[in-house]
Amino acid sequence: MRTATTIVLLFVLLIAIALIASGIGPYPIAPLTVLDVLTHRLFGTSADATLSTILFNIRLPRVIAAGFVGAALAAAGAAYQSLFRNPLVSPDILGVSTGAGLGAVIGILLGLPVLIIQLFGFAGGMVTVMIVVALARTLRGSGDVLVLVLAGIVVGALAGAAISLVKVLADPYDQLPAITFWLLGSLAGVKANDVAATVPVVLIGLAPLILLRWRIGVLSLGDDEARALGVNVERIRVIVIAAATLVTASVVAISGVIGWVGLMIPHMARILTGPRFDRLLLASIPLGAAFMIAVDTLARAGARIEIPLGVLTAAIGGPLFVWLLARSRKRLVP
């Protein structure tokens, strides 16, 4: 009961932060006014044209995008940490973020439109993980999970080297700044069409994680224990990797590479709900969404120029993660 209340409160917090963030900008709008405009749109009645234009064409697409980016990265991080039984695992453990970055920078180098660059980023992340899985199957040794992680590290390193090569070949006055800014993460260019294309993909990826959350939680007990409880370990592992990769690649394609969210948010949720994956996942989703909306709002309103999201998440996530480690030092020290 206490856990259910905590999860409900997290969703209430998410709604409140989204309403506040939607009103912050050069043209301030009170949260109650934002809610009033949304209510008018929901029931098909007329509202102030200026407010509707600002909210529905500019701010709400970005707030929604930030929420889904945070939710996707947090859910993927929680799933990977449970799957690999390692609290230091993040969504890019299989190279998906680096692969998506490589696809996007190639698109920028070729001078392609923004939509095609996003498709290149999505395809790059998916192809990278497919290479990792194929490599792990070819080199399968004493531990499948260990081989998969090591293959992800190797392929991710190669993709990172390819990104560096593309940056060397890029035009230093035009393409290189665009590549650098994209790799640091930003939602400045997100439009309603981007949200419409990304949200269904994220929901498709989150669905199996939510529906199978109890079986995924059993995997944290170990493969033998999970099999004894009737869980098809290999099938669930493939589903988790595919779903987490799908949501990560889809949001990285529109936001760029944003670190720390998938590593840090599950730890924060674990403090609130405990280590059980079924509770952890449901808490990580709203917590990650609220965190990302707050960070994105700070990025666009905290200074004269927009601060890259990757810089802010690292600046906030680093000290916060040290605090989390200090808080759990009794559990970490044998």
Results as ranks from 00 to 15, higher is better:
G143K: 14
S328Q: 12
G101D: 05
R140F: 05
R85W: 01
R270W: 10
G152F: 01
L203G: 01
V190L: 08
S186V: 01
I108V: 13
L110N: 07
V154R: 00
T128L: 03
V145S: 15
S90D: 14
V132A: 02
S90R: 08
L332N: 03
L35Y: 13
N86K: 07
I307F: 03
G152C: 03
I117K: 03
I131R: 03
G262V: 02
L158C: 05
K191D: 09
P334A: 15
P87C: 11
R137I: 00
D36S: 15
L158H: 00
A161D: 10
N57P: 05
I106W: 00
F11G: 07
G111P: 04
A134F: 12
F181Q: 11
G222T: 06
G23T: 04
T5Y: 12
D278M: 09
D174T: 15
P91N: 03
E225N: 12
F43I: 15
V69M: 10
A162T: 05
V8D: 09
F68S: 00
G189E: 04
L287I: 06
L88W: 06
G141L: 12
T297Q: 02
A294K: 09
P91D: 02
H267K: 08
A192E: 08
V149S: 08
N232M: 05
G25A: 07
L280W: 04
A299D: 00
D36K: 14
S186D: 01
S255Q: 05
L73F: 06
